[in-house]
Every structure is written in C-alpha cells, then in structure tokens.
C-alpha cells in the first residue's frame, strides 16, 4: 500500500488537527473524532490515527482496536465515486448479490477494493433502510432503488459521460482562458 498522503489529504489532515481542539480530551470523544476524520479524509490513514492518539493520549493500538471494530471505518482511500451495494435481507432475497457481482465484473474489482485510477470503489452494506425498493445500491450519495443488472451498466455509463463532459468543459475553459 502507498502510505504517502496526496497534497489534498495533507491539507485535510491539517484541517483535522485544527478541528481536534474543539473536542475535549475524553475517551468518549474517540468515536465522534474518528467520524470527523473520516468525513474530512474519507478514510483513516495511519497519519490521522497518530494525530488522534496524541490528542486523546491513548495508544495508537487502542485507537485501531476501536476503529476496526466498527464497520463504518475504512483504512484505504475509497474511489471518487464510492459504490455501496445493499446486501440486507430484503435486498439479498431480491438479488442484491447479483447486482454486486455486476458492479464487480464491470469494474474489474472486488468489494472492499478501489479501481487503480481511484475513480470507483465497491463496498457492501447491510440495509440502508429502503428495503421496499430492494435491491438497492448507493452511488456517491444517491440511493438507487429497484436495481437490475442492466441498470448497473447505465449508471456507470452516466458517470463516465459526466466525467467526459467535465473534462471537455475544462479543456475548453483552459483554451479560452
């Protein structure tokens, strides 16, 4: 794994460090702090764990111990477009597993992984509370209900097209300005 932080991540880490001041040095703040860090950095890099451990004056191993207990925390950077496929009971009986496989096949990665270009990552989650729309997938922050294998391709394509359009707009901007 590449442990180097990107320049943006370094910026975010500084931001984290300055935000820590607003949390009292109490053990009870550990989970809220980790949540804050993950909101800023979208995962918990080793460097951040260290900062948290120093602030709360507890061992890094303790911080890891707590963070790894909970499903919410990630230790690898997610893709720019995180994909979460629901495998809760309702989604499972309605074919959520097949939706997951389709994403995996289309992107060439397994759940828990990120594409090499860091564009997409896939996670499985247990119920997002929209069971009546099962099977459900979340891309970025948007919940998509009644998923079907054919919809997987469409959704990924839409992101690709949007990206291309942005790219074109950027090139146009650059050539104009």
């Amino acid at each position: 794994m590449n442990d180097e932080l990107t320049p943006e991540e370094k910026e975010a880490l500084k931001d984290v460090a300055s935000k820590l001041g607003s949390f009292e040095k109490q053990r009870g703040n550990l989970i809220p702090i980790l949540q804050m860090v993950q909101e800023k950095l979208s995962y918990l890099p080793t460097q951040a764990i260290k900062v948290v451990s120093e602030h709360l004056e507890i061992f890094e191993s303790e911080v890891y111990g707590v963070a790894t207990f909970y499903n919410q925390f990630r230790f690898h950077p997610p893709g720019k477009h995180p994909i979460k496929v629901c495998l809760g009971t309702a989604c499972h009986v309605r074919g959520g597993g097949i939706i997951l496989e389709n994403f995996e096949r289309k992107l060439g990665i397994h759940y828990g992984q990120t594409t090499p270009d860091r564009e997409f990552s896939i996670e499985k989650v247990a119920c997002v509370g929209c069971c009546a729309l099962a099977p459900v997938a979340i891309i970025d922050e948007t919940v998509h209900g009644h998923m079907a294998p054919s919809k997987v391709e469409g959704l990924l394509m839409r992101i690709e097209i949007e990206k291309e359009m942005e790219e074109r707009a950027r090139i146009k901007d650059e050539s104009c300005g």
Binding site: R27, G28, L30, I31, P32, V66, Y70, N71, F73
Partner: peptide
Amino acid sequence: FRGSGAFVCGEETALIRSIEGYRG
C-alpha cells in the same frame, strides 16, 4: 450520538460501551 455500524451495538450494554469510546 452516531453509531458506527456494528449490529451488536443495538444490545444495550454494548451500546453504552460504544458511547464510552470502546469496542462495543
């Protein structure tokens, strides 16, 4: 308090542990 995604934390004593900042 936002939970962090552990089913067992619905159990009351685990829930308490997790608010206290420990493994639930």
